[in-house]
Design a protein around this nucleic acid. Structure first.
Length: 759
RNA sequence: GCCCGGGUGGCGAAACUGGCAGACGCACGGGACUUAAAAUCCCGGGGAGAUAAAACUCCGUACCGGUUCGAUUCCGGUCCCGGGCACCA
C-alpha cells in the first residue's frame, strides 16, 4: 500500500480513476454522475478522510456493529430504500430484495446530540425552518427507563424488558408491554413456537414494506399476543407481552409499556385487541376529595391528578414523574433518562468508488488502523465492476491482502468505502489551505477564515448534510484543530426547482439544461429569468416560457441607451452626473418624476440585496424604471417645454446600468462603454439612495367605511392624523356612504388608510 | 404516518410589521407603424351583475370557523401539492 501511495502522482491517478469510472458506467449503461469526480476520485481527500477516520477510531468515536440492510442477491450489493421497488431491486424486476445483517462502521454522532441541539440557539442567522427541522430530527425527549421482568423466569438481564416512557406517571395504567419484532427477547420467546415465529415474521415484513414505501406511520397497527407475561415493578401486576409492528427497534429501547387510557396510539391498539383500559389520571379537580371525574379517553394531557396509583395517587402529573423516577432508581428497577431520536451515523458503503476505510483485520491483533505514513489507502485500478459476484474490492487480492503493522503477520483489509457525506462534512475547510500535504489544513489559516459567513444550499440538505458537518466541526474542535463551534454563521436555503411535479435532480433525470437556454437567449437572459421567475427561497415550478419577457426588457434597455447615450459633445454633462445630483426643487414635473422613480428603484434593489434576496422584485423594479423612461421619452417628444436636464438624463442611465449589472453583467458592461465611461464598472460605487429625492409629494389614501373601500383621498404625504381624518369625512363619496348613519369611530393610520366605523 | 414548507387571475408571481389584493412579466385581445408579415411602440384584461359607455353593486387569496374597526397575513380545524425520513448526495 505504501508503494501505491508514494509512487502514484495524484493528478494522473485521479484522471485515470475518473476515466475508468466513466468507461465502467458507460459499459453498464448508467448515467454518469459527474459530482463524484469532485470528492471520490481525489487521493488527497482519501488521505485526510482516512486520517480523520483513524482519529475518530482512536477516540472511540468510530465503531463496528451489525446492521440490517436491503440486499439484492443479483447485484450482490446493498440497496438504498429508494432503490427498492415493490420489494424488488430497481435493476432486476424479478429479484426479491433480502434483508441482510452486515458488520458496518458507525460514527458516534449521538455523543454530540445535546450540543448539536443546544447550539441551534446560537445560529440566529439560520432560517427558522431549518433549525426546527434539526431540533425535531435530534428529537430530545426526557423520560424514564423502567425494567419489567419476564414472569416466571429467573432474575437475569436476558429476562428483563426495559421500556422507555415519557409518562411514567401513567405506569399504574399499563395493561400490556409491547415489543418490537426484532427485540432480542422475542427471539427467545418464539424459539420453540413456530406458529408465533411465523406471526412475528409477518410483522417484520409489514414493517419493511412500510419503510420501503417511506410510510412507517401508514401501516395498519398489528400485534401478536405472546401469551407470556411481564411484571410491573411498581405494583407487581402481571400484564401480557405483545409484539407489535409499530414498535421500532432503533428508537428508545425497542419496548414500550402500553397505557391505553392515556395514549392515543395505545388506546387505538387496545380497542382493536380488546385489551384492558384503566384510568389512572383524571383532570385536576377543584376538590381534591372528588376523584370520580371520568375523563374522555384517551386523556393525554399533563394537566391532571393521579388516581389508582398506590402511594402516588393524588399527585399531579409533573410531580409524580419526578417522584416515581426517583423511586424506581432507589429500588434498582429504573431511572430518569434522556433519549434522542438521532441515531449514530452509518458510513460504510459496499461500493467501489469512495474513500476506502483504512482498517486492517489481523487474526492476532484484531482491528488495527492503517498507520498514518501509509495513508492514503487508494483504490486499486482496473477493477472489473460487474453486477454480479459481490463487492468489487473484496475480489482484488492485492487490495485485500495486507500486512499487520503491529505483528507483521497477514491481515485482511477492510473493503467498505465511506459515505460521501464524509467528504462534504469538512471539504470547505480544505478550501482555505488546499495544497497542504502535512495536514487536512492549517489551524491558523482556518481560524482566520472560519466560520463561514454565508453558506448557500438547497433545502433538501437541511437535515443530513448540515448536521453531519456541524458534528464534524465539533469533533475537530475537540481535537484542537479548529476554534469555531459551528461551521456556518449565516445560512441561506434556496428552494428547489420542480419540474413535472418532482424536484429536479440527477437521480431523477429531469434536468433542464442551462446550455440550451443560453444558446437560445444568451447568458444574461437565462440568468436574469431564473432570478425573475420567483424568489430564491421558494421552490420554482420550471416552465421554459417567460424567458422571452426578460429578453425583451434587455432589448428595451439596450435601445434606450443606444438612443440616449451622450454624444461626444455631451460628455461633460455626463461626467457632471457622476459627481453631483440635481436638487429636486430645480426640476420640471417630468424630470422630477424620473428622479423620484430612480431613487425609489435604487432603494428597492439595494434593500433586496441587503435583506431577503428577493431578486424577482429587484428586477420588477428595474422594469418599472425602464417603463417610466419610455413614457417620459414619449411625453417629452410631445411637450418640449417640459425638459429633463441632460445631466439628470445621463445620471439615470448610468445608475440604471449599475443596477442592472448584477443581473445582466454582459449587457451592462457593453452599455457602460456606450455611455462613454472609461472606468471599470466593477469598481464603480453602487448608487446612493436619497430618501428626500424618492419622496412623493402627494399620496392617495384609501378610505374605508366599516372595512370596505369607499373612496380615495389625495393628501400631502406627511399629513397629520387630524388632517386625514377631516379630509376623509368631508370627501363627497364618503359623505354619501355614511349618510344617515352614526359614526362610532374613525381609525386613521397616517400614510396608510382611514377606516370609518358607522352604525 | 411523522417533521418542515407551500396553495393568490389563463400562467410565473407581488403585497417585507394586520391596512387599496393581483406590482412586474408571460399568454391573450385591441390600436399605431408596414404593400404585408415579423419586430417595435401604445392601450386593455380577477369574476359576476348593471350600463350605449361609465360612475356603480356584489363576490373573490385551497376549504370551514374564530379574533379584529380591518385578515393573503394571526389562531383552531380540514383538504391538496412539494421536500426530508438516516444507502440519491
Amino acid at each position: 500500500n505504501a508503494a501505491i501511495a508514494n509512487n502514484t502522482p495524484p493528478r494522473e491517478w485521479t484522471l485515470r480513476n475518473i476515466a475508468n469510472m466513466k468507461a465502467q458506467m458507460k459499459r453498464l449503461g448508467f448515467a454518469y454522475d459527474w459530482s463524484r469526480e469532485v470528492t471520490t476520485c481525489l487521493p488527497e481527500y482519501y488521505r485526510w478522510n482516512q486520517w480523520f477516520f483513524v482519529k475518530l477510531f482512536e477516540k472511540g468515536m468510530a465503531y463496528r456493529k451489525k446492521s440490517k440492510v436491503n440486499w439484492c442477491p443479483k447485484c450482490c450489493t446493498v440497496l438504498a430504500n429508494e432503490q427498492v421497488v415493490n420489494g424488488r431491486c430497481w435493476r432486476h424486476e424479478d429479484t426479491l430484495v433480502e434483508q441482510r445483517e452486515l458488520e458496518q462502521w458507525f460514527l458516534r454522532i449521538t455523543q454530540y446530540a445535546e450540543e448539536l441541539l443546544r447550539d441551534l440557539d446560537k445560529l440566529a442567522e439560520w432560517p427558522e425552518k431549518v433549525r426546527t427541522m434539526q431540533r425535531n430530527w435530534i428529537g430530545r425527549s426526557e423520560g424514564t427507563l423502567v425494567d419489567f421482568k419476564l414472569d416466571g423466569a429467573p432474575d437475569s438481564p436476558e429476562s428483563t424488558i426495559t421500556v422507555f416512557t415519557t409518562r411514567v406517571d401513567t405506569i399504574y395504567g399499563a395493561t400490556s408491554v409491547q415489543l418490537a419484532p426484532q427485540h432480542p427477547l422475542v427471539a427467545r420467546l418464539t424459539r420453540n413456537n413456530d406458529a408465533l415465529r411465523a406471526q412475528v415474521d409477518q410483522l417484520i415484513a409489514e414493517q419493511r414494506k412500510a419503510k420501503e414505501v417511506g410510510d412507517i406511520g401508514a401501516i395498519e397497527k398489528h400485534g401478536v399476543n405472546t401469551h407470556y407475561f411481564a411484571v410491573n415493578p411498581f405494583n407487581g401486576e402481571r400484564i401480557p407481552i405483545w409484539v407489535a409492528n409499530y414498535i421500532l427497534m432503533d428508537y428508545g429501547t425497542g419496548a414500550i409499556m402500553s397505557v391505553p387510557a392515556h395514549d392515543e396510539r395505545d388506546f387505538e391498539f387496545a380497542r382493536k385487541y380488546n385489551l384492558k383500559i384503566r384510568i389512572v389520571i383524571v383532570p385536576r379537580s377543584v376538590d381534591p376529595e372528588e376523584t370520580s371525574v371520568e375523563p374522555t379517553l384517551p386523556f393525554t394531557t399533563m394537566n391532571g391528578t393521579l388516581v389508582n396509583s398506590g402511594p402516588f395517587s393524588r399527585l399531579d402529573c409533573e410531580e409524580a414523574i419526578t417522584k416515581m423516577s426517583a423511586y424506581a432508581e432507589k429500588n434498582g428497577f429504573g431511572k430518569a433518562t434522556v433519549t434522542y431520536r438521532l441515531k449514530d451515523w452509518g458510513i460504510s458503503r459496499q461500493r467501489y468508488w469512495g474513500t476506502p476505510i483504512p482498517m486492517l483485520y489481523c487474526e492476532k491483533d484484531g482491528i488495527v488502523p492503517v498507520p498514518e505514513k501509509d495513508l492514503p489507502v487508494i483504490l486499486p485500478e482496473n477493477v472489473d465492476i460487474t453486477l454480479t459476484g459481490g463487492s468489487p474490492l473484496s475480489r482484488v487480492p492485492e487490495f485485500v491482502n495486507a500486512i499487520c503493522p503491529k505483528c507483521g503477520g497477514p491481515a485482511r483489509r477492510e473493503t467498505d468505502t465511506m459515505d460521501t457525506f464524509v467528504d462534504s462534512s469538512w471539504y470547505f475547510y480544505r478550501y482555505t489551505d488546499a495544497h497542504n500535504d502535512r495536514a487536512p489544513f492549517d489551524s491558523k489559516t482556518v481560524a482566520y477564515w472560519f466560520p463561514i459567513d454565508q453558506y448557500i444550499g438547497g433545502i433538501e440538505h437541511a437535515i443530513l448534510h448540515l448536521i453531519y458537518s456541524r458534528f464534524w466541526t465539533k469533533f475537530m474542535r475537540d481535537m484542537g484543530l479548529v476554534k469555531n463551534d459551528e461551521p456556518v454563521e449565516r445560512l441561506f436555503s434556496q428552494g428547489m426547482i420542480i419540474k413535472g411535479g418532482a424536484k429536479m435532480s440527477k437521480s431523477l433525470g429531469n434536468i433542464v439544461s442551462p446550455d440550451e437556454m443560453i444558446a437560445r437567449y444568451g447568458a444574461d437572459s437565462a440568468r436574469m429569468y431564473t432570478l425573475f421567475a420567483t424568489s430564491p427561497d421558494r421552490e420554482l415550478d420550471w416552465l421554459d416560457e417567460g424567458v422571452e419577457g426578460i429578453r425583451r426588457t434587455l432589448a428595451r434597455i439596450y435601445r434606450f441607451v443606444a438612443r440616449n447615450a451622450p454624444a461626444e459633445t455631451q460628455l461633460a454633462a455626463s461626467q457632471q452626473a457622476e459627481r453631483a445630483t440635481l436638487p429636486a426643487t430645480s426640476l420640471q414635473p417630468e424630470a422630477r418624476k424620473i428622479q423620484r422613480k430612480l431613487h425609489q428603484t435604487i432603494k428597492r434593489v439595494s434593500d433586496d440585496f441587503k435583506g431577503r434576496w428577493h431578486f424577482n422584485t429587484s428586477i420588477a423594479a428595474i422594469m418599472e424604471l425602464v417603463n417610466e423612461l419610455y413614457a417620459v421619452e414619449e411625453r417629452a417628444a410631445h411637450s418640449p417645454a417640459d425638459v429633463v436636464p441632460a445631466q439628470l438624463w445621463f445620471e439615470v442611465q448610468r445608475d440604471l446600468v449599475i443596477l442592472l449589472a448584477p443581473f445582466a453583467p454582459h449587457l451592462a458592461f457593453e452599455l457602460w462603454e456606450m455611455l462613454g465611461e472609461k472606468g471599470s464598472l466593477l469598481r464603480t460605487p453602487w448608487p446612493k439612495y436619497d430618501p428626500a429625492l424618492a419622496k412623493e409629494e402627494e399620496i392617495a389614501i384609501p378610505v374605508q367605511v366599516n372595512g370596505k373601500l369607499r373612496g380615495l383621498i389625495l393628501v400631502p404625504v406627511d399629513s397629520s392624523q387630524e388632517a386625514i381624518h377631516e379630509r376623509a369625512l368631508s370627501a363627497e363619496k364618503i359623505k354619501a356612504a355614511i349618510a344617515g348613519k352614526q359614526v362610532v369611530k374613525v381609525i386613521v393610520v397616517p400614510g396608510k388608510l382611514a377606516n370609518i366605523v358607522v352604525r
